[in-house]
Design a binder for these strands. Sequence first.
DNA 1: TGCAACGTTGCGTATTTTGCAGCGCTGGTT
DNA 2: AACCAGCGCTGCAAAATACGCAACGTTGCA
Lengths: 254, 254
Amino acid sequence: MSASLAKALRILTVLGDGPASLDELATQLEVHKTTVLRLLRTLADEHFVHRDAQHRYHLGAQLFELSSRGLDQREVRSIAAPHLLAFNRAHGHTTHLSELVGSEIVYIDKLESHDHVRMASRVGLRGPVHSTAAGKVLLADLPPAAAAQVLDGADLSARTPNTIIDRDAYLDELARVREQGWAQDREENEPSINCIGAPVRGAAGTVVAAVSVSVPSIVATYDQLIELVPSLLAVTGTISRDHGWRPTREDHSR
Amino acid sequence: MSASLAKALRILTVLGDGPASLDELATQLEVHKTTVLRLLRTLADEHFVHRDAQHRYHLGAQLFELSSRGLDQREVRSIAAPHLLAFNRAHGHTTHLSELVGSEIVYIDKLESHDHVRMASRVGLRGPVHSTAAGKVLLADLPPAAAAQVLDGADLSARTPNTIIDRDAYLDELARVREQGWAQDREENEPSINCIGAPVRGAAGTVVAAVSVSVPSIVATYDQLIELVPSLLAVTGTISRDHGWRPTREDHSR
DNA sequence: TGCAACGTTGCGTATTTTGCAGCGCTGGTT
DNA sequence: AACCAGCGCTGCAAAATACGCAACGTTGCA
């Protein structure tokens, strides 16, 4: 493994919390100043960090550009964007678009709630597959072997008292999700946050992404959230069709 | 300088063009496979890249998260966002929000044109200070010494036949921008693209960012673009006030 | 079944990074 | 004005590290 690279990446991660000076970084990372300095220089050469006039370091433009390009490469994101915008505008709740990456989900787009109570999530954040509606949606349609492999790599720990931690119980839950075509999360991932999610399908019929709506229980009750399911399914259906999916008879019957 | 870190950063940059396999990366970077492999492993450990089931490497979630955090740290971006959205919706042209970083400008937000002719720019992209309306705006209000320092570090090469490459002529242009309160770019940065820009000011009255509108000459003539100046100044004025700026008498007289 | 392409590993060498000690600058204090 | 403290930065020698080689395992294709 490359130790110096790992240090440099940790520098970037620390800078994600905000700008920092050379020895703030050094003390926080417990690396000698001179080492940090040289890593920062290389990072700055490639525009991954920037040093301002007060000798403080910031995350650099290259990071923003790479992220922008990487997000654009997920074609589902651009296809979904206008539909998600309209959907979010209609009901005003925090809406996420997620993909399965390894044994975790990654938020690849986020639309903010219209409330002043905002969620701490953001694009690029990773989340567990077992305690989120998006995770359930992304796993439900996987071949059993593939799902098993994902679960092998996943951390199935309890995030709240409601989290499903038993593997068999979780597989039952996946069957339910597959059956009804959408997933719920009743304060399983975060206390006081309920969530519903539905799949976006590609041309081959496989699930390529998940759209989920997260609502604090103080803002709406679980029952009120469930009322959104039809419009959620409508929007994921539209996105799926835009993405090349053609409904089968079986799907129609649902 | 840290050679291995530089290689790793180049790997990320190459991955910005799209997913790649191990030895696509190795041949493209002219680095031995084994080296690339180990760097990729470290990058993957920190979630800067992700390896899919087909052993292809993609940009990772951590990159997206850092970018999202870094962009959020620019408070001007969140303040400007709603106003830029409304502004963009009203006239439908590509709109950028930029900051001065070193001797270049960096796009920290972008709103797409409503036309199908889109621009190749993106958030995080860097651009020259001397040939862009945003660059002129960001330099115009700098103290002469600071502006000189920026220009010392800048590449003042000709980007089109119209680019101002003479330093004194450019300083004259800056005086004009300062005088009229906004800047133009008449195919100085890209052929067939005209641009206007205006400053966003902070509480201290200093210019903290620039809003610019870019329009291909096939979509609108230069004169038509100029007609947008009043509404551009209106939106930058609003953003500036939201950002804590209080107009002085001098500013009112303009 | 054989071949080819690709990803992967172990190991010795040598390049790199590292930490130390010290220098110079800047900004604040008496 | 002069001093001090804090911080960024450099040269050098030691040592840890990454590197490249050669070879192996696996997968997919002819």
